[in-house]
Design a protein around this nucleic acid. Structure first.
Length: 655
RNA sequence: GCCCGGGUAGCUCAGUCGGUAGAGCAACGCACUCGUAAUGCGUAGGUCAGGAGUUCGAUUCUCCUCUCGGGCUCCA
């Protein structure tokens, strides 16, 4: 038999029989690789395992336990779900079913019927049948005419075929269907079930099985609010039972940490219905944590060269006409209040007011960079369906700063800003950052190409100076300037976008901001918007979830609870409390009305960092029994020693 | 804003095929005074989200409103 030569990813050559496929190649490399293989990449194109190889192909094997492998697995599972739904709901129209992060979904038009959670078990059972049947995924390329005839009962499929072959495909379509020119690719499982698809897929449904359907919801066809409403089922799928279980466990963990739930359990804050949606009241325990966060932020800004300002919550409409917000953003603003001397709006942003402060008098280059800082509360009328606890809220406080600088200063300013941002976030327990640079949208921007280029270079150079990896989002910038977004990874691996550093070439123009340069000429400053927390409320929510409500000692609402063993020890407990209070520690005494075990349990459930038990021995020796969160109980610690330890712990966390 | 599903005691929930409701925890009282994650007994607590309709009678059925949840869309 003749042989052909294949190039592997490491650059090595391998000779294989000329009737080889991706699968036989994988198996020839090792038995385990053959087993783990789920698809391949041939000359840069993802293909099925059954793909034949030809002389000179570059081949990479995709295994099930890789991101790309799980993607294939999930997409194939989506097909299985579509088949199951079509079996169970005759007349259902199927639309698209992509793999997504951690899972997949598929959208159906049930002709007015809807899915409920109760239907999921049936669909799952039907899917198991499909999987047990071990149906093959057979790829074919057929002509457009054949495809339209094959899917004549499926209007959504026809629409996709027409759009793809008509050259007006978007990203969603091209993930759904492959083929070139006049043909489209399909994958057939049975005589009855066939789906349009780019592929690749697993060889047969028997390769699947570690999946779970999660929820039903609705979605718009092609994301268009005016279009048909479809029924969507979300599911997750993994390469092994243990990977599936681990993922489901992570979901449970996320639910356990949900800040909305912990806010109630720990009495941090609430969203009274009487206030209206998306508006919170902060209870004492939440308020103290928030105050500590704000105090820390203020202290850092003070030492970081910022000047504090305050601005009102309301403004005359003319301000927002000047800033342009009323033209571009009126839908996001609370409605106007008609007053006898004009129309007023609650502010959705602080920046226009900071511009007024800058413009309040003539500015010299000697003052730049001028850094104005405010914990500024803004109001945005978020659409009702988008509200989500503290993460999306209608009244919130930005740790907002506007920096006015020259073009020459931009580079250094951003370099030091990145330092500042990471240093502040690290103080709150975040270590893992990712950076995203958004560049000009060629369709929509203000300012010269030249200033965009120099500002974008300043941002990327700053990132490179710090030696951090970053992704570039081409065209994702706002119309007024390029920006860096900073995401953090929390304790259970989720990422959150918090900080942002945005260049603005627009507002200085609109407000006609100037400074006097060294040569006496009037120059326009560049304005930087930046926030570290983003919103204090949202950052608080992220912190609650990151710590699962167990704040580090310096942030804990109550740092120490003192539990006298019996009533007779209450006087001593007060003495200990007094000493700790004197050192600035937040301490509470829990009187001996309940059994000790009960009181310990309650204190632990409240996630108190230190529970001190004091009894006869302690009164005699001036000691305490220390029950620290996550540590063994330690009896007989001298009060002075405990005070020293905790004050040291707290002082290390705060500047 | 759109689709679907909820709203019963402070919290978590049960229940009423239409006859105005119940548990656990929490609160309060009494007894117990206890050395490291739930002592016992008792008391109180609800216009069953709000409004309208159907009905002899509505927490239960219907409609509307508010609100919450899951998505979609949105986040200049």
């Amino acid at each position: 038999m003749a042989e052909i030569s294949i190039t592997l990813p490491d650059g090595s050559q391998r000779d294989v029989a000329d009737d080889s496929t991706v699968l036989t190649l994988a198996s020839s490399i090792s038995r385990n690789l053959g087993k783990a293989a789920i698809a391949g990449v041939v000359n840069g194109q993802q293909v099925d395992l059954s793909q034949s190889l030809t002389q000179g192909d570059s081949v990479e094997i995709i295994t099930v336990d890789s991101d790309r492998g799980r993607h294939v697995l999930r997409h194939s599972t989506a097909h299985v779900m579509a088949q199951a739904v079509l079996n169970l709901y005759p007349g259902a129209k199927y639309t698209i079913g992509p793999a997504i992060e951690n899972g997949f979904y598929y959208d159906f038009d049930l002709g007015g019927r809807v899915f409920t959670e109760d239907n999921l078990a049936n669909v799952e059972a039907e899917m198991r049948k499909v999987i047990t049947a071990n149906q093959p995924f057979v790829r074919a390329e057929i002509s457009v005419a054949e495809a339209l005839s094959l899917f004549s009962e499926q209007p959504y499929k026809c629409e996709i075929i027409e759009r793809v072959t008509g050259g007006s495909a978007d990203g969603t379509d091209s993930a759904e269907v492959g083929g070139s020119g006049d043909s489209v690719s399909i994958y057939r499982n049975t005589v009855e079930f066939v789906d349009l698809c780019l592929g690749p897929h697993v060889p047969s449904t028997g390769r699947l099985g570690h999946f779970k359907l999660q929820k039903v919801s609705s979605a718009y066809w092609r994301g268009n609010e005016k279009g048909p409403v479809l029924q969507r089922i979300y599911g997750t799928a993994w390469e092994s039972k243990s990977a599936l279980e681990e993922y489901l466990h992570r979901l449970e963990e996320a639910e356990r940490r949900d800040h909305r739930r912990l806010a109630v359990e720990l009495d941090l804050l609430s969203f009274p219905a009487e206030l209206g949606g998306g508006l919170a009241v902060w209870h004492p325990k939440g308020a103290i944590v928030r105050k500590l966060m704000e105090d820390y932020s203020r202290a850092r800004h003070q030492s970081g060269g910022y000047q504090f300002v305050f601005t009102p919550h309301l403004s005359n409409a003319t301000l927002f006409q000047t800033s342009g917000h009323l033209d571009f953003y009126a839908d996001g603003m609370y409605p106007p209040m008609e007053m006898d001397n004009g129309t007023y709006y609650p502010k959705p942003m602080n920046c226009p007011m900071h511009c007024l402060i800058f413009r309040g008098r003539q500015r010299s280059y000697r003052e730049l960079p001028l850094r104005l800082f405010e914990l500024g509360t803004v109001y945005r009328y978020e659409r009702a369906g988008t509200l989500h606890g503290l993460m999306r809220i209608r009244g919130f406080t930005q740790d907002d700063s506007h920096i006015f600088c020259t073009r020459e200063q931009l580079q250094d300013e951003i370099i030091s800003l990145l330092d500042f941002v990471m240093s502040v976030l690290k103080a709150f327990g975040f270590e893992d950052f990712s950076f995203h640079l958004s560049t000009k949208d060629p369709e929509k921007y203000v300012g010269s190409d030249e200033i965009w280029e120099s500002a974008t270079n300043a941002l990327s150079t700053a990132l490179e100076t710090h030696g951090v990896e970053y992704s570039v989002k081409e065209g994702d910038a706002a119309f007024y300037g390029p920006k860096i977004d900073i995401h953090i990874r929390d304790a259970i691996g989720r990422t959150w976008q918090l900080s942002t550093i945005q260049c603005d070439f627009n507002l200085p123009e609109r407000f006609d901001l100037e400074y006097v340069a060294t040569d006496g000429s009037r120059q326009r400053p560049i304005m930087l918007h930046r926030a570290l927390f983003g919103s204090v409320e949202r950052f608080f929510g992220v912190l609650v979830e990151h710590y699962a409500g167990a704040f580090p000692t310096w942030l804990s609402p109550v740092q120490v609870k003192i539990l006298p063993v019996a009533e007779a020890h209450e006087t001593y407990a007060q003495e200990v409390a007094k000493e700790l209070l004197g050192s600035g520690i937040r301490v509470e005494i829990v009187e001996a009305n309940d059994q000790l075990g009960k009181r310990i349990r309650t204190a632990k459930m409240e996630k108190t960092p230190y529970v001190l038990v004091v009894g006869d021995d302690d009164v005699t020796a001036t000691t305490v029994g220390v029950n620290a969160r996550g540590l063994e109980v330690e009896r007989g610690v001298a009060v002075s020693e405990f005070t020293r330890r905790i004050t040291e712990e707290v002082s290390h966390s705060v500047i």
